[in-house]
Design a protein around this nucleic acid. Sequence first.
DNA 1: TTAACATAGTTAAGCGTTAAACTGATGAAA
DNA 2: TTTCATCAGTTTAACGCTTAACTATGTTAA
Lengths: 332, 332
Amino acid sequence: MATIYQVSDLAGVSLATVSRVMNNNAKVSDKTKQKVLDAMKELGYRPNATARSLASNRSDSVGLLVPELHGPFFGQMMGGTESELRDAGKHVIITTGHSDVDKEVDGIEFLLSRNCDALILHVEAVSDEYLIELHKGKVPIVIINRYIEEMADRCITLDNALGGYLITKSVLEKGHREIAYISGPKWKDDSNQRIKGHKKALEEFNVPFNEQLMYQGDFTQTGGCDGLTSLLDAGIPFTALVCGNDEMASGVLATARQKGMDVPKELSVTGFDNIIYASLLFPTLTTIDYPIRQMGHMAAKLVLKEVYDKKKLEIRHQFIPKLVERNSAIIV
Amino acid sequence: MATIYQVSDLAGVSLATVSRVMNNNAKVSDKTKQKVLDAMKELGYRPNATARSLASNRSDSVGLLVPELHGPFFGQMMGGTESELRDAGKHVIITTGHSDVDKEVDGIEFLLSRNCDALILHVEAVSDEYLIELHKGKVPIVIINRYIEEMADRCITLDNALGGYLITKSVLEKGHREIAYISGPKWKDDSNQRIKGHKKALEEFNVPFNEQLMYQGDFTQTGGCDGLTSLLDAGIPFTALVCGNDEMASGVLATARQKGMDVPKELSVTGFDNIIYASLLFPTLTTIDYPIRQMGHMAAKLVLKEVYDKKKLEIRHQFIPKLVERNSAIIV
DNA sequence: TTAACATAGTTAAGCGTTAAACTGATGAAA
DNA sequence: TTTCATCAGTTTAACGCTTAACTATGTTAA
């Protein structure tokens, strides 16, 4: 691989001049610049990002940590972030945390050790304190999908409580009163916020919350399957089943079909997230739209603004969920 | 951030000794080693990967290029590759190509400029020649989902032709003779291989191939919607519709439902890939299983074997597709 | 006693850039 | 004509680490 040294040699100028042409951060005459560019082309020169980063302490790349690489949700988020940053000539380094403290910390350290200019984190296991501490360091942090008071200006969140409220309210408005709920893991904040919204809606309609109609799932399809089975086995009747996310709802739909239950006639089912295939399920899923792709975009914009001086970008910190009515929930 | 220098200072040894403790690649007495480790801990030392990589010309990270970050297919592939490499203490740097020559080249150059120890590529737009040329360079390349004779030992592929054959054969065996086909883009190799298999099956059953029952889609849901509409408009009757992939098939199912067609009674539909939600569609989709996650794993293993000297790993270059019969295709 | 040889550690030269400090030439103002 | 900026380039010291070459200090065996 050609180095800047060979380029400078061929062009008959000094190292520094080549560096200046590359970064165009100082005056270089057009004639000299052309000589350098020609030499670069001739040698097929490609700057060594590692050396650059070491010398300049920038890397033109942003670290992105997500729980998982697969799944409809994070794919959208990564896609949004990546496209925004790429348009700005920045690159993204993606790694995973698997919702595990050690792995999340490990991932963050990896990104830091790679000299990322900023970090965009979707972390679930690590503590608020850890993040606040991290935030005090010199690499800017953006948190997605989690709200931390002390660094509110670096958080991009969805109003999960509102979403939880809206979906349950829509079910209540259809006349349901016996409403079961399959939640996400209790230790996840978004999961709890959704439950909070759910309870608020119940309260508003004077429906007492029944702990026995609540099943704690894990946000996966299987969790939905198990949840439905468990709730049915408990023997307490319900006409609607609100799920903490779409993946669990899809599990519920599949299991219900297996058990010969007719959704929505015998049981109304709802989801949360509006993942890409929510409209392809049968019946099509009534859910809450989670604009995760836009949030991914916004996280990137926040980085562009804070780190790369794109001052005019407008940042929106909280996103609003919207009800999407389809066919899986009907009037009782 | 603490540097190796400060660690050596605190431990009262030289730079080199610290470096040796980190990499344990030379004899250091236990006593000295402990002093160094203590000093590291005290300073919260974290090695600077950039400097390391510049000095050693290794990076302990593998570049991964995929067309898109979202979508059920690539998510699985990335997940497989990442988990395998991570278990081996290696990291993955992911970037995208968007099936566009310039972007793919740009992505590859980015990965090269980051000093990746190897590249795993799922590229579609770049030419074979380009890849062969790349392969001659000093960074090892693994190609996933594309077969190139000249670098066959670096390709991990699925027998797409066999898959195409199997799915069409299964439809033929159900008695269908008027079979429409929605293909992927003509310029994608896997797309063509699937068509090839399709034709072979037709031939075997003495069913003439009818160009008018062929629609070229783009592997997206929308492509499936448009395809069905277009084929119906053409007015040539067909009892089965074979789709080049599951996403298009899901579009077909949705459109068919909209048009009031009963799948599978009026029309049998099949997909290809067996994406995560194929079993959640209604009707559940008969398709070809594409073990993309395992292939992602295998690509990682190939890298581990070739680059990181894990000699005993067994590599499998070609994967075999399997028919998955569900409810979207029935006897005519 | 000494040569031969490990062993444990140090020194210093890179790796490919950036960027601060410097040089020399040109030209305009005093 | 001198002075002082300005401009276009150069020199050189980092950046934080690895590693080849070297030194010092035993240890062993003849």
